[in-house]
Design a protein around this nucleic acid. Structure first.
Length: 293
DNA sequence: CCGCGGGCCTGAGAGC
DNA sequence: TGCTCTCAGGCCCGCG
């Protein structure tokens, strides 16, 4: 499910419920998600205070007073919702505190703030893991990640450098979390359209080794930043699973220019193209064959 | 080393 | 209505 904007939306929704609050009771309602839960998972968490809630790429990191970090990933279909003591955040939709846990509600955090935080994940591609803060650098999920696209270490120079010598398509390269961390299928497609670059273009053609990055690379960096920022403002994109922690939908899907818009007219001013769907490395790519070169 | 295809899971939607 | 098939926002592993 979630790419960077959805995960950031989730982080912002969870922060008021979790930051500075103690985990009063933790419940893992099954033995595993993508991986088995750590040994004594619930017991180790109970009583800890969440001192901060951060994000790296598509991962959430809750800093704990114990000195450990709770690393959480939403996989394809994971979502969190926050409910206040006995009341559902969206009336009529969620009722955990009053009744039974819903289907696929796998982890429940009862917070001293009076909020209950519930992790739901039908496909169970998500996971939770506890890591000592000192070993965060070597954590296998985090160590290989490239720069944060919204951070200042991501620019045309670094992007050009990581694309140099890459034989794959631009689409595949941008989906690679080592190149830039946090993009997925949707936002790669959207950023490429907005920078008028073809997903089929060889990645290395963006890197001009002698004279440094070219205008194409610059416009791609700008498009990536723009699209992600706009999507965060919109609360992410809700296609199937993504919800904000209140249960509300995100609405960036209404701003898609190519994703899931096969056959529609290209929205680039003056462009007469129609959006096309192709398959690259096993995933759908949407683009305009006319204005994306 | 690199790039690709398969697999992990469940659910939604299309077509018959 | 109900079956079967395809596809889905991520990521890891093994193969060539």
């Amino acid at each position: 499910m979630p790419e960077l904007p959805e995960v950031e939306t989730v982080r912002r929704g969870l922060a008021p419920a979790m930051e500075g609050a103690r985990l009063v009771k933790v419940e893992a309602r099954r033995p595993d998600l993508r991986f088995p839960f750590p040994k004594d998972f619930a017991k180790r968490l109970a009583g800890q205070t969440v001192t901060g809630l951060g994000r790296r790429a598509k991962y959430l990191l809750a800093d704990l007073s114990s000195g450990e970090v709770l690393l959480m990933h939403l996989g394809m279909s994971g979502s969190f919702r926050v409910e206040k003591s006995g009341e559902s955040a969206t009336p009529g939709e969620f009722h955990y505190p009053r009744g039974e846990a819903g289907k696929h509600d796998h982890v429940i955090f009862r917070m001293s703030s009076g909020y209950t935080v519930i992790f739901n994940d039908p496909r169970r591609f998500g996971f939770m893991k506890l890591i000592p803060r000192g070993r965060l650098e070597e954590e296998p999920h985090l160590a290989p990640l490239g720069p944060e696209p919204l951070g200042n270490r991501f620019d045309a120079e670094t992007l050009a450098q990581s694309l140099a010598g890459k034989k794959t398509s631009l689409k595949a390269a941008l989906s690679d979390q080592k190149v830039v961390a946090g993009l997925g299928n949707i936002y790669v497609c959207e950023a490429l359209h907005r920078s008028h670059l073809s997903p089929k273009r060889k990645a290395s053609t963006l890197a001009d080794r002698k004279s440094g990055p070219n205008d194409m690379t610059r416009s791609l960096v700008d498009a990536i930043r723009f699209v992600l920022n706009e999507a965060i403002k919109a609360g992410g994109s809700s296609l199937r699973d993504h919800r904000q922690t209140t249960g509300e939908l995100g609405y960036f899907q209404h701003h898609f220019r190519v994703y899931d818009r096969e056959g529609t007219n290209c929205t680039t001013p003056g462009c007469k193209g129609k959006i096309k769907r192709i398959v690259q490395t096993g995933r759908s790519t949407f683009y305009c064959p006319v204005c994306q070169r």
